[in-house]
Design a protein around this nucleic acid. Structure first.
Lengths: 140, 140, 140, 140
DNA sequence: TTTT
DNA sequence: TTTT
């Protein structure tokens, strides 16, 4: 018990969010996010990009679908979750995702028709212990 | 460019750190860390544990080897890195690890013969752009 | 717009939380929190303690009043807020506080009769845009 | 001991950094940073801005002086420090500052002639236990 | 004013 | 595989 599992990312979306709808109408958005880091090595500037699998649930997924697009710069706060799945060949594999808990769009003024911070408590779609939306945080 | 990739964890070590030495004498420590979370579902308390693969390089690995043991509660700050590798059967797989940048032991008094915060800039063993140790942060 | 204002602290309470009740029955808890840092200077170990003014609103204040006491080790997440006030002599002064958004008790087993993470959206008592409680996070 | 004191901010500089030089040639940069937050209250969008006093020491101050200007959007990581001072009238006052440990410029492409993350261990100017610069992180 |  |  008593753990903290927190991820803070600032990066650009590699693709538009992809939204799926589960039984019960629960929405799930996912997209890749790139965080790049520069450093000097032997006098040359090296840029290293790390890709993260971002997952958003329910109301946060809906907001993401509406306001996030490929290329946008966002601040994302969330937690790590590793889950297993079977690939097409039936081989068990693992993937680590960042389950987003809130996000803020950063960047150009033109990106800010909407400037509210988006926040949503979200969890696995098959649990309903926290399915409400932090409506006050939504921009409409 | 311009990215932030930060992980903050507080959890317990699932095992003692395992230390390996690469060519050049570079040390790498790794261990699993559990972060647990409790919540109420339908009136029952559910505990959910997430396991993280922690990796520490060089001086930080040495400090970890000396001061961290299975069961200890630690605060860890680091970044996410996903890398691919081939399993024994030659199948390409991916794993996501937390490359620790510093840690602080939390918890019981008996855990605190040493109480300095440990911090070390570290990177891939095959790169040497940042191989020094933040010696002032080391407890000896 | 588009800002992030986040504070992450792990430290010990210097006093029991002090709870006040505003008009409307809104509860506000506050207490000092010590975060200490050790480092070596000229071969001697120096310990430096920083004191933070923690403020919790509404449901989070109620949970704090019940579960936090002087000496306990807690993880606190919140945001900075600087406000002005007049001292007894009528002189305008400023104070910077950490408005907590959630906390987790860390530390000894004896501290863990209750082990849920406490979280509450909270704001100034004179605003009511976010006055609900994240009830699912509360331990009762 | 065993504390964590961490601040994460994303905001705009309210002024150009002001650089002072202490005895020994130690440089100190300081500037105000605004973090704004939007929320809906009674259907109206409210924007609330918080101002932070940012302080940078030594090499980090030098990088700030070179690359940060009024209006720029930056990610700043640091720690809180409250110190007392006497105002012109000899009255003792307190101020809380964010001692930056690293920063990253965010925002428009045009802001990124230089895109390295800046990082520097820094402390009070009158202590020399950590006076070196994380040179590898510097952009020259 | 905490803790080790 | 941790911890409470």
């Amino acid at each position: 018990m008593s753990g903290i599992n927190k991820v803070i990312l600032v990066g650009h979306l590699g693709k538009d969010p992809e939204v799926r709808y589960l039984e019960g109408g629960v929405s799930v958005a996912s997209f890749p996010l790139a965080t790049s880091e520069s450093f000097n090595k032997d006098g040359r500037k090296i840029e290293q990009t790390e890709w993260h699998n971002i997952v958003m649930w329910r109301g946060l997924a809906d907001v993401a679908a509406k306001y996030l697009q490929k290329g946008k710069l966002v601040y994302i706060e969330g937690k790590l979750r590793t889950r297993s799945f079977e690939d097409k060949a039936g081989v068990k594999k693992y993937t680590t995702e960042v389950i987003a808990e809130n996000f803020t769009i950063l960047g150009r003024k033109s990106d800010f028709e909407n400037e509210t911070r988006h926040s949503l408590k979200s969890e696995d779609a098959d649990s309903d212990y926290d399915s409400r939306t932090d409506a006050d945080d939504l921009p409409f």
